[in-house]
Simulated scan of single mutants.
Amino acid sequence: MDTSIIINGFPLLIKGAAVTLLITIVSLILGTVLGYFLCLMRMSYNKFLSSISFIYIWIFRGIPLLILLFLFYYAAPFDIKFSAIQAALIALTLNVAAYKAEYIRSGMLAVKKGQIEAAEAIGLTPFQVMVRIRIPQVIRIIIPPYISNATSFLKQTAQVSVITVPDLMMNAKNLYASTYSPVETLGFAAVLYLFMTSLLMLLQAWSEKKLNIAQNNR
């Protein structure tokens, strides 16, 4: 192993890792917000809204992320031209929102109807029921699987390198192309991915422990 390649390429790989983290975090935040509204639409008694949400989730869970990336970067509608990062963020957000909507919906459905009925009986408005009853319980229910999914999602962001986003994977491939040393370039990139996903795994383990403590204290 040529350690000089790792040392010289370290700044480039770290910069790529920062881009990977950035697009992951931004996409997760935007996707979660969009997923929340999709969940509300899916659970709505309005069949039109429910149908739109169902179709959205069906489409974006069924289309591979790689195809979405190509569509938004090379074939955006109305002759719109997105930069590589813009196309990546749009595709990732739309993709992750479909999954987060289902996670949130499963959490919503897990809240017992008796609690909702009791809250309504004492005069709480639908908004108050959502804020005081549903959301706190939904967060507790979905946090562990949410973080687990985020770990998988972080690895999937490596696909954005195909549309020239300068993420960790793209920079590792460029470094490999100039050195022809796969262990020192792609291998070290794998270590960085492992480090980032390990942090999320630790966060998941910590959250599960805290949630168990909260449940045991009830």
Rank of each mutant, 00 (worst) to 15 (best):
T3S: 12
T3K: 12
I7Y: 08
P11C: 08
I14P: 02
K15P: 06
A17P: 05
A17D: 00
S27I: 12
L28W: 01
L28I: 14
I29W: 07
V33D: 02
V33S: 06
G35H: 08
G35Y: 08
Y36S: 13
L38I: 14
C39Y: 09
L40P: 00
M41V: 04
R42Y: 13
S44Y: 07
F48E: 06
L49W: 14
I52Y: 08
I52S: 11
I55P: 03
I55G: 05
Y56H: 02
Y56L: 04
Y56M: 07
I57D: 04
W58Y: 11
I59Y: 07
I59L: 14
R61G: 08
P64S: 01
F70Y: 15
A75H: 01
D79L: 15
F82S: 00
S83G: 11
I85K: 02
I85P: 02
L89W: 01
A91W: 12
T93P: 04
N95A: 08
A98Q: 07
K100D: 09
A101G: 03
I104L: 14
I104F: 12
K112M: 11
K113W: 12
K113Q: 15
E117H: 10
A119G: 06
E120W: 14
L124S: 02
F127N: 09
F127R: 10
Q128P: 02
V129W: 05
V129A: 02
M130C: 10
I133G: 09
V138C: 06
V138L: 03
I142R: 05
I143P: 00
I143S: 10
I147A: 01
S148K: 02
S148A: 11
N149M: 11
N149F: 14
F153N: 01
F153K: 03
T157V: 04
T157N: 02
T164N: 09
T164M: 13
V165S: 00
K173V: 12
N174T: 13
A177Y: 13
S178E: 11
S178L: 13
P182M: 04
G187K: 07
F188S: 12
A189S: 08
A190M: 02
A190C: 07
L192S: 10
Y193G: 04
Y193Q: 03
L194W: 14
F195S: 11
L199P: 06
L202S: 07
Q204D: 11
A205T: 13
E208I: 03
A214H: 11
